[in-house]
Design a binder for these strands. Structure first.
Lengths: 248, 248
DNA sequence: AATATTAAGTGTAGCATATACACTATCTGG
DNA sequence: CCAGATAGTGTATATGCTACACTTAATATT
């Protein structure tokens, strides 16, 4: 294996969102720092998944690498949303300890580029079990201890996601290839923290010709089986309206 | 004066947009590299305005510093829009030369954080004359030679601006404190590359209660004098609608 | 003084989209 | 076969969007 050289002042952090048909989740690393002799847990925290970039890879490549290492998946939605370079990113004594431990003290000043990743999280649950990585409901994050400025980064990612979901069809990245309209509605409700009228929601979706009904239906459910739908990016790109109107 | 230590792998670049009541402009540096002995111009290019960050300042602070040095103004709209870290940011021989000259070769691998700045450019024209910095119409940039990946960064900034202007009231940052509705319309048309019906435009604006008519009117114009208006951020924040609807 | 020129300012009708609201249909499990 | 659960459907009202043409008020020209 090649040993890569690290760019000392730059890292990427991925905020990985998942949807389990009920609520929005985020993938976090459970970290513990143990005393080497006694094995006693000195500090514990949650972090986002990130690392320094190598000097022979692009920012995007680094983010994909981290994502792949973690979930075993590639071909996921992954997009930069902001860079974080506050002087006080690593301020507390605890954070200093983490920095030494996690980043091995490559540099004091690290600018990190935040990436937003979206996954259908019913697919990755299994592969994670071995690692110290878990899905946490987005609503519970506010009560969690997180290292560095990762909580801040998380909230900025959530904001970016909520903004973006209103103007681009990225919600589908959080669903499997085919899905029911109720699942889609639950997703939008979870994302936007709102609730919609079922009929109006479906009316709206039916105008989006890139959400295409399949012949497939649900099976084995104890109620009227729902029809499956598909998101077609191709149709979306073709029929995309060039909105010149502004809404402020 | 204190000599600052530089963070070797990180810089900021500002894409500064201005509006002159006619068209959208961008502020670029005209650079020449001359042979020290003969004085002959070896290479010439345009660049964005940027520099490394210091190890004792935030990213935002660095961007403000650069903006202030250049325009003499602070209190401008300034916002991060993306980070750029492609391996081939500095690829051509020409760019290698620039890198040595401009950045003094602090590092090969530089990740730059792009900032978007908005100015009423009727106010800064004078102060720029001494420096090798000029306003260029956005429409002409495509025909210009630019160093590094600055043209790419410029286009990404323009895209970000065009997206943002549709959902947030940042267009007003490009106008003086008071302005006429025709000026506002011209601005939106320049920003979005569209043209609007005057009556419909004004109808739309009149629903935005944060665009407030003043008692002041134009003077000395050879036509019916226009009324001046004011953008009130305060009113905007108060009356901001929480749109939960999504448009895709 | 009269007229030309320029941009400011104004209303209405048709169409499309958004909202509010309640019942029937179809499957499984007991 | 009945209970429970979720899927699926239509209409009326209000709001917002689009298309379209003339009058007003200042200066400049003769």
């Amino acid at each position: 294996m090649i040993s890569h050289k690290i760019v000392p002042n730059v890292s990427v952090d991925c905020v990985i969102f998942g949807f389990d048909f009920e609520k929005l989740n985020v993938l976090l690393v459970d970290r513990e720092l143990k005393d080497e002799r006694t094995g006693k847990v000195l500090i514990s925290d949650h972090t986002l998944t990130g690392y320094h970039i190598y000097d022979d890879e692009d920012l995007d490549t680094a983010a994909y690498r981290i994502l792949k290492e973690l979930t075993g998946l590639d071909n996921l939605f992954l997009e930069q949303f902001a860079a974080f370079g506050q002087l006080d990113r690593v301020s507390s004594e605890k954070d200093q300890l983490w920095l030494k431990h996690i980043n091995k003290g490559f540099a004091d000043r690290i600018i990190t580029v935040g990436y937003l990743a979206l996954i259908d999280n019913t697919q990755v649950t299994l592969k994670l079990s071995e690692k110290n990585v878990q899905w946490y409901p987005v609503n519970e994050v506010k009560n969690m201890e997180m290292a560095f400025d990762h909580k801040y980064i998380f909230y900025k990612a959530l904001e970016a996601l909520q903004k973006k979901v209103k103007v681009e069809p990225i919600a589908f990245e959080l669903l499997p290839d085919y899905f029911t309209l109720s699942q889609l509605q639950k997703l939008y409700e979870a994302l936007l923290g709102a609730s919609f009228d079922k009929r109006n929601f479906r009316k709206k979706i039916s105008q989006m010709h890139y959400v295409i009904p399949l012949k497939k239906k649900q099976k084995g459910v104890p109620h009227k089986p729902a029809q499956y739908y598909l998101f077609s990016r191709e149709v979306y790109e073709k029929t995309k309206k060039n909105r010149i109107s502004f809404i402020v």
